[in-house]
Write a protein that binds this DNA or RNA. Structure first.
Lengths: 133, 133
DNA sequence: CTTGACCTTCCCGTGACTGGAACCCTTATG
DNA sequence: CATAAGGGTTCCAGTCACGGGAAGGTCAAG
């Protein structure tokens, strides 16, 4: 199978698939004309990667997950540890973004948003005068 | 004031302050020995930047906000538009992360996490067999 | 024989910095 | 006077996970 087919089958751009080869995540064969040739197993692997990436795992985590996936003697605890770590990072990021959102939403609410120059948003950015009174 | 003092006063690393000069966000004076010299106004501006960045505004948004901040005739609506747009992006990101979190949390819960190889997390990544039965 | 859709490699750009090398300026101390 | 410490300076490279685009090879159809 050529890279274009693999791309449609996995949803990954061809560029991304080449990149994954570059960094050693997949190693397709080569046809006589130099074209990459992918087996169903390669496609399966790339789908695994696409799914893991869509869940926000980093490339290095994907590499680890792939290794575990291909290790028939792996311990599920190892997989869960990676997932849990990632989960913690996601939770932290969510909290951080929620704080940003709350602050910003408050400022946007406080701003009348017309053609006058007075603006609580800028006042906050300027010096943390969070609307006195 | 030298860059080190500005760094402590604003909480921004010196490297970042130099970077902000590079991209034209601040333009400190220069002393005879080539050192950057910052006025209180520069520090104020950098604090503005630090606060805006901490709220997740991109550098380009910061540039726009700075321009509005320094335009005494600005309309608060313009500021609010930028903030609102940013708010939407934050909301979208939060939703995306929450979906990731929910999926991952489900998988982690389903994984017994011991030394056996059987693992629902890998099963999901492998092919979307989301635990049949 | 040409067209057009594929494929290849290669290099640059992204955002917002961070690390590090190699060097200059200033002050204090032996 | 040498030197060491602790500022500062420039410039280059790396991060992460690709994406854009150039320059060119390959293949099936008309």
């Amino acid at each position: 199978m050529n890279i274009g087919d693999v791309s449609t089958r996995t949803g990954l751009p061809a560029k991304t698939i080449r990149y994954y080869e570059d960094i050693g995540l997949v190693t397709p064969d080569r046809a006589g004309n130099g074209y990459r040739r992918f087996s169903p197993a390669h496609v399966h692997k790339l789908r695994f990667l696409a799914r893991a990436r869509s869940l926000g795992f980093s490339i290095e985590e994907c590499r680890d997950l792939l290794a575990l996936w291909e290790d028939r003697a792996r311990a599920s605890a190892d997989v869960r540890a990676i997932a849990n770590q990632h989960l913690d990072r996601i939770e932290a990021k969510i909290t951080e973004l929620q704080e940003m959102r709350d602050t910003l939403a408050g400022l946007v609410r406080a701003c009348h948003g017309d053609d006058r120059p007075d603006c609580p948003i800028l006042r906050d950015l300027e010096g943390g005068t969070p609307k006195a009174g």
